[in-house]
């Protein structure tokens, strides 16, 4: 039982980080109805920019974080401006394929800038272990998880109580209706991409704190997409819930099944979960069921 709890709680800590990537994807989907594959790359580039500021250029932490976030804002804005805006009015599936093309382009750029090395920054979160309900946990994971949780609360407040958040919710409902009430749908699209790049970068910084910045990092973004699909593409709560479930499932299944089948369960657990959820609830745990008409 103790082993189970240990595995489950460590898994949930990582799951919180998946949930952050998923939140970035959900944000874009909510306003524009585009499912983005590109967020794994945005996240990795955010982490890379942070590494560049903190380690290569030796800026203090208090400056490095805003620099990475500033970079992500430029990145998010330019993706929207250069590729998404010309596609307004095109089928949504074209936009999905475009995010896939952006993924490929940035994948090459990411490999090029890494040159095969693995970068890491010495953890700036306090080290050491903390005992939580008799389970020892590294403090850095708890702090990353706390960041994720706070981010979710902040996003919830943003959507609930600010004017821009209200505009974004209105845009998500219906583009034409939103436009006719005086909301500039274009600027909402821009700001949603910027916001989601912002969230993805925070996720990237927190994630690179747990693992190195190396070639497979962008593919964690695919896990974020899985979390978003499992939780339901419209729902931030769903993203958090599914992220925790996925993190827990990965860790527990690999802890118990790896010795039996010879390792690697962690890589497929997410995909098996996705296939299972899609078969029983095609729109995710908390997603809206779409009713189609001809």
């Amino acid at each position: 039982m103790e082993k189970f709890l240990q595995l489950a709680i460590t898994g949930m800590m990582v799951g919180g980080l998946y949930a952050m990537v998923a939140a970035a994807i959900v944000l874009v989907y909510k306003a524009t109805h585009v499912v983005s594959l590109a967020h794994g790359q945005i996240m990795s580039f955010g982490a890379l920019a942070f590494w560049l500021a903190l380690v290569a250029l030796k800026f203090p932490l208090i400056l490095a974080v805003p620099m990475a976030l500033g970079f992500s804002i430029i990145l998010g804005w330019s993706i929207e401006r250069l590729t998404m805006r010309p596609l307004i009015g095109q089928p949504l599936f074209t936009a999905f394929l475009t995010t896939f093309a952006i993924f490929m382009f940035m994948d090459g750029a990411f490999q090029l800038s890494l040159k095969g090395s693995a970068l890491s920054y010495s953890s700036f979160f306090p080290g050491g272990m903390v005992s939580l309900a008799m389970i020892p946990l590294p403090l850095s994971q708890i702090v990353s998880f706390g960041v994720a949780l706070m981010l979710f609360i902040a996003l919830a407040f943003f959507f609930r109580f600010t004017k821009v958040g209200l505009g974004m919710r209105a845009t998500a409902e219906d583009h034409q209706l939103a436009q006719s009430t005086g909301i500039s749908v274009r600027s909402i699209f821009s700001s949603i991409w910027i916001l989601s790049a912002f969230v993805a970068t925070i996720a990237g910084i927190a994630l690179a704190n747990v693992m190195d910045i190396h070639y497979p990092l962008p593919y964690v973004g695919i896990k974020g997409l899985i979390v978003a699909l499992v939780g339901g593409l419209e729902s931030l709560t769903g993203a958090l819930l599914a992220g925790l479930i996925l993190g827990m499932l990965e860790n527990v299944s690999s802890g118990y099944l790896d010795p039996l089948v010879g390792g690697g369960v962690k890589e497929v657990a997410a995909y098996v979960l996705l296939l299972f959820i899609l078969l029983i609830k095609p729109y995710g745990i908390l997603g809206l069921v779409r009713i189609e008409r001809i």
């Binding site: 394929l97 093309a101 994948d107 090459g108 490999q111 090029l112």
Partner: peptide
């Protein structure tokens, strides 16, 4: 390898847009 993937992604974006 990296440049190939980059060129491919760029061509894809251009074609899709």
């Amino acid at each position: 390898a990296a440049l190939g993937v980059m060129a491919f992604g760029l061509v894809l974006v251009l074609f899709l847009v």
